[in-house]
Design a binder for these strands. Sequence first.
DNA 1: TCAAGATTGATGCAGGTGCATTTATTGGGC
DNA 2: GCCCAATAAATGCACCTGCATCAATCTTGA
Lengths: 162, 162
Amino acid sequence: MKRKPSTEATAAWIRLMRIQGSVLDAVEQDLKKAGFPPLAWYDALLELSRAPSGEMRPVELEKQMLIPQYSTSRLIDRLVDEGLAARRECKIDKRGQFVEITEAGRELQKKMWSAYSAAIEKHFGSKLSDADALKLCGLLDRLGCSCDEAPALAPREGAPTR
Amino acid sequence: MKRKPSTEATAAWIRLMRIQGSVLDAVEQDLKKAGFPPLAWYDALLELSRAPSGEMRPVELEKQMLIPQYSTSRLIDRLVDEGLAARRECKIDKRGQFVEITEAGRELQKKMWSAYSAAIEKHFGSKLSDADALKLCGLLDRLGCSCDEAPALAPREGAPTR
DNA sequence: TCAAGATTGATGCAGGTGCATTTATTGGGC
DNA sequence: GCCCAATAAATGCACCTGCATCAATCTTGA
């Protein structure tokens, strides 16, 4: 009788957990050493900068980033504190609000992308051929939870994370 | 001129980060809902249970688990508090100590593996053929940092994480 | 129209994590 | 033998996260 998670699946699981962790760690360390804030900030700024008018509802941001509501709320707090984003009132729904990226926010996002993309290349891209990367995409996509799956996985620039 | 991290590499990066996050999350939720402690506890108990005499140095544990020193120290605190492990003095090096898994620790590790393996199968294994799993292993292994790479990636049972 | 329930966002609290530092001990060079 | 750098482990502090809950507002349906 076959084992429930096959030996192969278990081996792949272990690697997925370990390798992702160490590669992400290496990238975040590079960013931190370059004096940049955490990647979550980048992800948020990227999403905001992509929004048609540079602003979006916290709920939207939350869905895009796959992070819990309170986490979004506090992340926005920090961005606002640093002048990277601003809260705008939402006239059509007084419970809510809009968050708008500032000029400083756009600039930081761009600067971070320089460092971030370099780190991705160094710790990840340089170790795979494009063909390998495509294979990896294919395999990982098969794991995509039936659930949401962030809509616009950006064929453009900048890589959101997590 | 080619982009630095190719489009393919960037796409793979995004998926690696997002999919790993959501799958790990799903698995941890299952474990938590079943009333079990965090996966890190399981990993530690697994490592300890595998040690020849059921005990190892914190430093060893730290290297196996790829977590920082202080993190290991506190994890051991919690395991000891719960009676899952015990600190033993180390006669050959009085700076150090040995951590020994208790019977309760071994039992918890086994119970957790039932739930953990089921969750791996549900959220991961069932979505990949064995051949796919092997391909995924191969691709991920290419990313292994030149650094350590936890030695015994256990061809046995139980999957360590992160 | 109005009450019940759903949705948006914030927050108090407990616990976890990273960083830097501290304490104890070891080992190496002189 | 003695001093100093290196190693083992713990810990104080600031910050971050998850959970539960709250207040405000919107929506639905009788």
